[in-house]
């Protein structure tokens, strides 16, 4: 297993992993846009054969992109680890690398993300392992009508 910064040639593998694993999918230009705008904060896990088995795709918001917040902060758009590569702690390590890069490169004050209300395993990871807390509940955030927990973690102090 190899965990490292996401590169351009990982885009296909990241998109494929997302499509296999998660219900929220995006066209290539979306993936491209994030990597080309914030090239330092997305990471991948690849197996011994070079296949992408996990990734975190992140962005930076500031007052120009997010009217609700004047603070520069990171946001995790999508994170996923293939079912067959669970229990290796990949998600935790991907998140930590991304968080650190958000802080050092962009001076981000916090990182936010959305998670399905029913996704106990993910909520456990964010809350208990990484220290996130619930900032808000967004009703019917997902396409199928499920609510999202909006979670936040302050990166400094």
């Amino acid at each position: 297993m190899n965990i490292r910064l996401a590169r351009i040639d990982d885009l296909s593998g990241m998109q494929a992993a997302n499509l296999i694993n998660l219900p929220e999918n995006y066209v290539m230009k979306f993936w491209m846009y994030h990597l080309l705008t914030w090239p330092q904060i997305s990471f991948v896990a690849e197996n011994g054969e070079g296949k992408i088995v996990g990734y975190v795709l992140a962005k930076i918001d500031d007052e120009t992109t997010d009217a609700n917040s004047a603070e520069v902060h990171g946001h995790v758009n999508s994170i996923s680890v293939l079912r067959s590569y669970r229990r290796l702690g990949l998600a935790r390590r991907l998140m930590m690398l991304s968080q650190e890069a958000m802080l050092t490169v962009y001076n981000a004050s916090y990182v936010s993300l959305h998670v399905r209300k029913s996704n106990k395993a993910a909520i456990g990871l964010y809350k208990d392992t990484l220290g996130f807390s619930v900032a808000d509940i967004e009703k019917k955030y997902y396409g199928d009508g499920e609510d999202a927990l909006s979670m936040k973690l302050y990166l400094k102090r």
Binding site: N47, G48, V53, S84, Y85, R87
Partner: peptide, 9 residues
């Protein structure tokens, strides 16, 4: 640990 990917590794 019950790591499912052990064989692939």
């Amino acid at each position: 640990k019950g790591i499912p990917s052990l064989f692939a590794d």
